[in-house]
Simulated assay, not measured.
Amino acid sequence: MKAIGFKTSLPINDVNSFLEFEMEKPAPKGKDLLVKIAAVSVNPVDYKIRQNSAKDQVLEVPKVIGWDAVGKVEAVGDEVSLFKVGDEVYYAGDINRSGSNAEYQLVDERIVGKKPKKLSNEAAAAMPLTALTAWEIMFDRIRINEKDKGKTILIIGGAGGVGSIAIQIAKKVAGLTVIATASRPETVEWCKAQGADYVFNHKDLINEMHEAGFQSVDFILDFVDINMYWDIVTELIKPQGHIASITGSSDPVALNKLKNKSVSFSWELMYTRSIFQTEDMIEQHHILNTVADLLDNGILKSTLNETLSGFSADHLKKAHQQLENNTTIGKIVIKF
């Protein structure tokens, strides 16, 4: 089967940053599905792993990345109970296994959902990783529930892949008042189209929020850089509020700034359940099925914004370059 990977970490404009090659089609065992892939999308995690996982070394076999896919089940392992051959599925996969930048992929059924019936392959491929991340950060980490309806949430990085669907989930599912950050006219409009009630410029966030009448907010989601915004979010969060971030931190986070307000802080990593094979790993199956129903019912909409037709190294390079330039709005999908 055809796959695209890399043997060493190179700048994306290098001719060898991605290599097309042939590898053996894998066979499913246990809870694995063998999926024939129809479309994939790209995420910032893709380029970060490409840049860092093969530094100062040359791998014998190219590393295949990619963590968003839509496809059809071609074969199943002997312990599979949730799907059958022929089912259309979508998923974000497992960061410790071979990725979706290939014609076929093995994936544990517990982190796979039914593909939304009313969406194209491309529109569906845009959704798994970002929807899982947004859902988990709100409902598993912060544990937003019915009693929180009408409360305020600030989403830093509203026009990105995760921010785009987080706006929708916060507004349409959680019933919150949604404030997003964006700085360009096109990203401001995109955030409003996703359902944001207010959009403020991150470059003057505190002043713009105060001028609009928001002295503080109940919840804050960081999808950009937690240390860059730490002083801002600790000022804007309400006493007994909750801040959550997906971005990680190379420097320690000054949690002492939260003490007087009794504010909670959480990290979110969508891969935690699959990395550690947690007892509740199947929750990602349930979340993806719930999101599929919300998409089919028109409550949520795909964040697809650009489609590249043809599974090739050149298209992967183009998608990675856009993400690295931080100019992407919504999601980029590659159609096989």
Rank of each mutant, 00 (worst) to 15 (best):
G158T: 06
P116T: 01
K25C: 10
R110V: 09
N325T: 10
T328A: 09
G161W: 04
N227G: 04
K171D: 00
V45R: 07
V253T: 10
T8R: 00
S250T: 14
E186Q: 10
V253Y: 01
L221R: 09
H242S: 00
A159T: 01
I137K: 07
F21V: 02
V333I: 03
T181N: 08
I232M: 08
I167Y: 07
E211R: 11
I243D: 04
G310W: 02
T278E: 04
K36F: 12
Q240P: 13
N13V: 15
D108R: 02
S302P: 06
E146K: 14
V178I: 07
A92Y: 06
E306Q: 15
G71Y: 09
V15G: 03
K203P: 09
G160C: 03
V224D: 00
A125R: 02
A254S: 13
Y229W: 06
E24G: 11
E146H: 12
G248D: 05
F6C: 03
M1T: 06
G150R: 09
V85C: 06
I165H: 06
L119G: 05
E324Y: 11
S100T: 14
K31D: 02
I206M: 15
K25R: 15
N297Q: 11
S216L: 14
V162E: 12
K238S: 10
I144T: 02
L19I: 11
T133P: 00
G330W: 09
I155T: 03
I153R: 00
L304F: 05
N305S: 09
L59M: 05
A54V: 03
G30P: 08
M138L: 15
V73F: 03
S216Q: 12
I95F: 04
A180E: 13
G5R: 00
V42T: 08
E60S: 01
L221T: 13
Q105R: 10
L10I: 07
T177Q: 12
M228Y: 04
H242G: 01
E136D: 09
S53N: 07
I232S: 09
S164V: 06
K151H: 03
Q215A: 13
S262P: 05
A92W: 02
D140P: 01
A244Y: 01
K331C: 00
A126S: 13
G86F: 05
Y271M: 12
Q321P: 15
E146Q: 15
N16E: 11
T234I: 13
N297H: 08
A174E: 04
G213Y: 01
I282A: 07
Q51A: 12
G160K: 01
L269C: 10
V42Q: 12
A125S: 02
V253Q: 07
Y229P: 05
H210A: 11
A38W: 08
A125G: 08
L221P: 06
Q240C: 15
F139A: 05
K2C: 03
D87T: 01
F200A: 08
K36H: 07
Q240Y: 11
N289A: 02
L82A: 10
K261L: 10
A54Q: 02
G248A: 06
L258H: 06
R97C: 00
V73P: 04
F200W: 13
S41M: 10
F18W: 08
S9T: 06
N43V: 06
S164K: 00
F336M: 09
E103W: 14
G157Q: 00
L308I: 05
I167E: 03
A92Q: 14
A292F: 01
D148W: 10
K318W: 13
F200E: 05
K55P: 01
S274D: 07
